[in-house]
Design a protein around this nucleic acid. Sequence first.
DNA 1: AAAATAGTGTCTATGAGACACTATCTG
DNA 2: CAGATAGTGTCTCATAGACACTATTTT
Lengths: 225, 225
Amino acid sequence: MAASLTLAVSTVIFALRPHPETAHPALWLPLVRRIRSPHKGLWALPGGPLGPAEDLAASAARNLRETTHLAPRYLEQLYAFGRPDRSDDRTVSIVYWALVHADEASAGLETENVRWFLADALPPLAFDHSLIVEYALWRLRNKMEYSRIAAAFLGETFTLSELREVHEVVLERDLDPANFRRQVESTGLVVPTDEFRTGGRHRPARLYRHDHSIELADNGPLSGR
Amino acid sequence: MAASLTLAVSTVIFALRPHPETAHPALWLPLVRRIRSPHKGLWALPGGPLGPAEDLAASAARNLRETTHLAPRYLEQLYAFGRPDRSDDRTVSIVYWALVHADEASAGLETENVRWFLADALPPLAFDHSLIVEYALWRLRNKMEYSRIAAAFLGETFTLSELREVHEVVLERDLDPANFRRQVESTGLVVPTDEFRTGGRHRPARLYRHDHSIELADNGPLSGR
DNA sequence: AAAATAGTGTCTATGAGACACTATCTG
DNA sequence: CAGATAGTGTCTCATAGACACTATTTT
């Protein structure tokens, strides 16, 4: 049995980067071009075989680093895909999803076979990767509503407007600034600092930071895994 | 790589059966005794290697049937466990969890190496199976609060008291009958019939049935998988 | 009639959301 | 001062929960 089955780990990596037209933040993800059959030439999720003594999450983080030269700010297992017809060679893929903070350096690291795409304008993907991305987007949006994973897209400190914008971009809808502020403040998961963001042509906004003692998302008994 | 790695599918199977002391319904799950090393003699989750052309969920359902002689009323992927130190022989386990309706027939099918245990009084389990069961319980309780999976524990028709009792047993807390009734009725996922459950020394209760056109739980883009 | 559960009515506290308003910066 | 966003106040509506009450059966 073992000899006829391949176990791979793939990762759906999300980052916020400016939209090329509007310059507003948008959701992007990196894909790699397949350089061999099957589906040669098509874009696919970064991933590869699991190392002999490698943890699943470590394998996802390694692929993420090799593809984007970034470290994951949030990493969570998505699902295991194993339908016999999903590839020619009976591959079971354990898929993770990750949030990264895409800085300017990493943005220039695209190559012939690694390219970032707008999440809402993806090319046709190899295998069942289109379904996988769709599911990852669903999970991301779900989790954005009841956890603090938005923090993974931001720096150490941020204004409430910046935090709200992350939510708005991911959820694809506008949020009321007043209500958003109250909701975030009432959780106590965000801590005001003494500093302000100046520079806009308007009143400076107070900077906040996240309470690091609390995890970005509650994954129950698996939180430490 | 493939030759040194084993992929197994295991399943956490839940059923409601009477508690041996109180006779009230309680949460049970079946375990199988390991008959070989490692952890020989310890109880473990039912499972086994994935068939060469077998779907992951089909493998879980097969193991479930072979262990309990029952068909799953609800089946969902739980998580893939793959820490290198979780077993001696580098096994990655893709774990499912299932709800079954344990009838009288299946209850008598215990053998020397298959036994049902109360979910809150499990023996020490092999490998990381204790953690896995803990996580499955967490997911079950979570999902019980916002989906209709309770239906999987009941027959075609049921009273709202019976439905409430399922929730109470799983969530381990009492629910207000009046509020529970209104919440369930307001979802529209439950349909009143013209029949009543008589026999108690009290007013007969109307029987309801579930709307089969709606899935027990919303798993997003994966609902059909 | 008593006991028990079925089922209804209603009050309160809480939170989401709409939206008007004030505050304070830049240009 | 005009324009913009920061930040506050407040109203409404929907929902969760507590709990009193009525309805209908069996014994």
